[in-house]
Amino acid sequence: MKEFLHIELLHIGDYQIMVYHILALAGIFIGTKLILFITYRIFLRQIKTKSYDEGRSLAFYQIIKYVLIVAAIAAGLETMGIKLTLLLAGSAALLVGLGLGIQQFFNDLVSGLVLLIEGTVTVGDIVELDGLVGKITEINMRTSSVATRDNIMIIVPNSKLVGDNVINWSHNREATRFHVEVGVAYGTDLNHAERLILQSALKNSYVAKKPEPFTRFIEFGDSSLNLEVYFWTRNMWEIEFVKSEIRKEIYAAFNRENITIPFPQRDIHVHSNQKN
């Protein structure tokens, strides 16, 4: 058996690859895959039982995954007889040259580590970046995947999520406040109109009962008295649908109570300059 393990498979200069090198590499590979599989199953079980937040759990798993992969590569190189210290020293000049040429690449890598460790943005969060609203579906070392409401997948460099102004609607894990505007005709009983608006908002199952929705008279418009209803919801991803349903309820309630929603009107005066 010992003689079999020391059978030479490849000879390059002073370097030899034996059977036991291949078996050791296979063992390291299989062991790493097995540990990652078990770790993932543990985190998946915790997510299903709601013991841990899904985004944070996946972030911790990604960190463990990268650490194990790096450790496996290092162990594999050591097993093959390649000294990491000599390898790093010999490639130092090359790494400096590469660093100057691909600074953005390394910036994205570092930003990926920051996201995974700090957890400012995690998988499942709804974010707004450059006016685009999307859901974080995956955070990798260099890039993150963001799915829009149109189910279009966008690959975003991690440096943008760290360095740019990003609105994270899910960051506080609590309900977020939104509002819907509506105008009523001059002469309308505003107190009655506000009661109808509040009732319309509370009919929606996605609107939180605590904090309670409230209305506000915001301005005297050109042709209407403008009101707003403010409400809280945890369903940020489908907020446009929620707003649409609330508007429908308000419109139906106003029709039942004969409250007019005016539209802009313009009077045109025609002056005739006729000479006798």
Rank of each mutant, 00 (worst) to 15 (best):
L225Y: 12
S223D: 11
Y230S: 11
F231D: 06
F217H: 13
R216P: 01
Y230W: 14
L198S: 05
E228D: 03
E194C: 05
L196D: 04
R216E: 14
Q199M: 08
F231R: 07
K203P: 02
L198V: 06
S224D: 10
F220D: 09
D222C: 02
N204E: 13
E219K: 13
R216F: 12
G221A: 12
I197Q: 03
T233G: 10
A201Y: 04
S224M: 13
A208T: 05
V207Y: 06
M236I: 09
L225G: 02
Y230H: 15
F220K: 11
I218S: 14
S200N: 02
F220R: 13
K203T: 03
K210V: 11
I218M: 12
E194M: 10
L202G: 00
E219F: 09
R195N: 14
N226W: 03
V229G: 10
V207T: 05
K210H: 12
L202C: 04
L198W: 10
F214L: 03
K203D: 08
R216V: 08
L196I: 03
S223N: 15
Y206I: 00
S200T: 05
L196V: 02
A208Q: 15
E219S: 10
I218D: 12
W237C: 01
T215I: 04
N204W: 00
E212F: 10
E219Q: 11
A201D: 01
E194R: 06
N226C: 01
P213S: 08
F220V: 06
L225H: 14
R234P: 01
M236W: 07
V207P: 07
K209P: 00
A201W: 01
S224G: 02
S205M: 08
S223Q: 09
A201L: 01
V229M: 07
S205E: 12
K209R: 15
L198H: 08
S205N: 07
N235Q: 09
P213F: 11
Q199P: 00
Y230V: 04
E212C: 00
S224I: 00
Y230A: 08
N204H: 15
W232I: 00
F217R: 14
Q199N: 14
E219A: 14
A201F: 06
I197N: 07
D222H: 10
N204I: 02
E219C: 04
D222P: 00
E212R: 14
F217S: 07
N204D: 15
F220A: 11
V229I: 11
N235K: 05
Y206K: 15
K209V: 11
N226K: 13
I197S: 07
S205Q: 13
T233R: 07
W232N: 10
N235E: 06
F214Q: 05
K210Q: 12
T233K: 03
S200Y: 04
F231H: 09
